[in-house]
Structure formats: C-alpha cells, structure tokens
Design a protein around this nucleic acid. Structure first.
Lengths: 140, 140
DNA sequence: CTTGTTTACTTGAGTGAATCAAGGATCATT
DNA sequence: AATGATCCTTGATTCACTCAAGTAAACAAG
C-alpha cells in the first residue's frame, strides 16, 4: 500500500493525527525496505525469522494465503537471504531460516527503520507510558 | 501492503503498541474497502475527490507516479464511480470527479471504516486531547 | 498394508498496485 | 513559428495477493 489509508473525512483532530501517524509509519517502513532493495513484504517476512519456522506458521501469523508466502520466500531465497530446508520430522514441511546474509540485511533494516524509535524517543519516559496506556485503551 | 509493517524488534512497549495500531488500522482500512469491492488504493483515490481535480494533483498528493493514478482512475471510471472530463482551460489535462454513485460508495466506505472513529471514541475528550498532543510531539 | 482424509506446501491463472521509459498533445515562451 | 516544458497515457516489468488445483507425505482406520 503505497497510497495512504485515509482520510475520508476526519471528524476529530485525534483521528486526523492517527491517520498521519499511520501514513508516516507506513512510508518510513517502505523507505527503509527500499534502501536495502527489499519490498515491504520481504522485509516483513525476513523480520519474522529470528527462529526457523515453517511456511504455514508464517502464513498464519501474517494472515495471508500460504501461496503468497511461498512466492515471497522464493524471492528471498533467490536473494540469498533465506534457506528452505526440509523438515526432518515431516517431509511435507519446509523450515525457513535466515542465512548469515539474511541476518545482516535484517539487522541493517532494523537500523534503517528508525521511525518508531525516533517518534517514541521524542517523548519523556512518562509521556511514553501515557501514550502506551492511551493507545491500549483506544485499541480496546 | 497486506502484510504488516514491522516489528523487527520492538525495544520499548510504546513502539510495540504503535506497531499494533498501524497494523490494525491498515487491516481495517483494507477490510472496509473490500466490503465495497474496492482496493485500498481505489478507496483512497475516491476519498480524495470531494472536489474535482486533475490527475497530476492526485499523483502529487498521494506521492506516486502519474501513470499509477491513471490506472486507478481508469478502473474507478469503469466501475462508474468517477468521470474524467476534459479541462476546458487546458486540453492536456483532465478533471476527475466522483459520480453520484461514487459519492454513494464513498459515503458507505466512510461508514464502513469505523476503526479510527471507534478507537478515539473509547477515550474521554480529555484523553483524546492528550493523545493528540502526544502523537503530535512524537511526530516531531 | 491399503484406503481415505487431512495437512503442508507448490503451481498456475488472474487481478491490481507500483515504477520507469517513451510518446502524443497541448500550453507557454521567446 | 520553433522550443521546451507540462499533462497525461501506453507499454513493459515486477511484485503482492488470492483462489483453485495439484502433489506429496502424514495419519487414521479398517
């Protein structure tokens, strides 16, 4: 989603700021990925491989079709960032794991994606707690 | 972006909540669009046509290539939600405007996309002001 | 053990977003 | 009238995403 999500009509100021936040966050994420020549989806998957895991687990966590994950992982594999090893316990399944290069790129991505860190860093510890509490309440 | 944006590693709780918010927001936007058989990008463009305007203006506001807008608008036109009239003052340009049907769908979208409204509605007026202030500060 | 079912993943087809390069038409300037 | 910039479209390409079908292996009876 390169195009922003909203606003249709923002009735309250809080809604407008919320929208701004989401927009800036998404763009920052995309930009950080682009710096490493990754698509946002690739960066996302790569970031969820701190431990090796199956394709199905990824699909479920990310809430998308398994075939989508297959494609993304195939591309990450072609880039040398990920391997797909057969699962010795279940020969239907395959375990996806980051390569050392994948670790390196993932680390660089984490460094490049400064938005959340920076935004939170603009707040005092007290304010951070307030924000956390407010957002939790807002999320229901 | 159906796949979530983040987290790589969330160092603070505030960052984690921020990520949650963005994720839920994006998914809600997508779901609301899907209810009306629109893509998120289509809903986005449709929502920015309260006044008729040129393709270029849309592209600039949405930060993407003009040819991308062309495609999206062509599809919206095929759905009968939008018209592209020639600009009498400049025959290179075309003015995009919602049709009555487009207005209707846009309104239904605004109704279906309840996330921001609902989230903010969980907070008292005071809390809403606090949230607005905190997010403004965090956004820098 | 073989039959049938479920599970895990891949493949293929199709849609749409997005970008880039190139082109046509029109405007604006000299 | 010629030049160059502007507005938009077209074409080519990549990728994300979904759905329908298919393969292969696990699993559970009979």
């Amino acid at each position: 989603m390169a195009l922003p999500s909203g606003p249709v009509t923002t009735s309250s100021e809080a809604e407008a700021v919320l929208f701004d936040l989401v927009d800036v966050y998404d763009r920052a994420y995309e930009a950080a990925a682009a710096e490493l020549s990754l698509s946002p989806a690739q960066a996302c998957v790569l970031g969820r491989l701190d431990e090796r895991r199956g394709m199905g687990a990824l699909a479920e966590e990310l809430g998308c079709d398994a075939s989508n994950i297959t494609q993304i992982v195939v591309r990450l594999e072609a880039l040398g960032l990920v391997t797909r090893e057969p699962n010795p316990r279940d020969r239907r399944a395959r375990l996806v794991a980051r390569t050392p290069q994948g670790d390196e790129i993932n680390h660089r991505f984490a460094t490049a994606f400064t938005f959340a860190r920076t935004a939170v860093g603009r707040l005092s510890p007290d304010e951070q707690d307030q924000l956390t509490a407010l957002l939790r309440k807002a999320l229901g």
